[in-house]
Amino acid sequence: MSVILEAKGVSKAFGRLVAVDTLDYTIEDNSINSIIGPNGAGKTTFFNVVTGYYKPTTGKVVFNQRNISGSRPNQLTRIGIARTFQTIRLFNNLTARENVLIGMHHRLKSGVFGDIFRPPAVRREEAKAHEEAGQLLDYVGLKGYEEHAAKSLPYGHQRRLEIARALATQPQLLLLDEPTAGMNPNETQDMILFIRKLRDERNLSILLIEHDMKVVMTISDKVTVLDYGKKISEGQPAEVQKDERVIEAYLGRRALEMLKK
């Protein structure tokens, strides 16, 4: 297995607040990786650095041997990094299909004059894109919802649509920000299976932020724990679960001492 993403000594500071502190992190090809940590540990900030929303204050991020620190989000999408959001950010007044088509935007070639005059090549491209969007919606279980406004979909469907939209960009690395937030146990179980399926069928690497420990421990190949922007533990789920520093970070020192007794 080869490394597809490597963060080397990445820090991100807002004024005097250091949200991510000299973090080293690697993601291997075709793996599921989780980042956990208490609120404010810097998880989402790290996501935003990896996806180009923030430029790291120090350090660099390398994706497929390419230094990507300082690239804009849309540039990173083009080379294979896609994401979903903690609070769903769909294009509310567009249909489900149009949402997915936006994910394909960078792969379509039509320009202004092509869009206006629609030569056969553009027509073919559009038809193919529409069909592919339909297949993707089908893949995430939204068949029949193609022409619905995104805002009219139920919550769980909106989460799936966000994933379909991200998949439409044809990523190599998919970042999921709390994919099971607000889901009931059944939906969560579906999501676990679905994330695995993404890794296996679509050959993706997945990085996820998750609060649900059951999810994290079930699907992760690697779990990383952040606290105050620093990595305090990393390894396979079983290893991390036993790590004293993790328990301390989550429950505090006194709890740890009580546990020891």
Binding site: P73, N74, T77, R83, I102, A166
Partner: peptide, 13 residues
């Protein structure tokens, strides 16, 4: 609808 989300989906704003 959402400039930031569009940026993340590969649309150059």
């Amino acid at each position: 609808e959402d400039e930031t989300a569009a940026d993340f989906m590969g649309v150059d704003p």
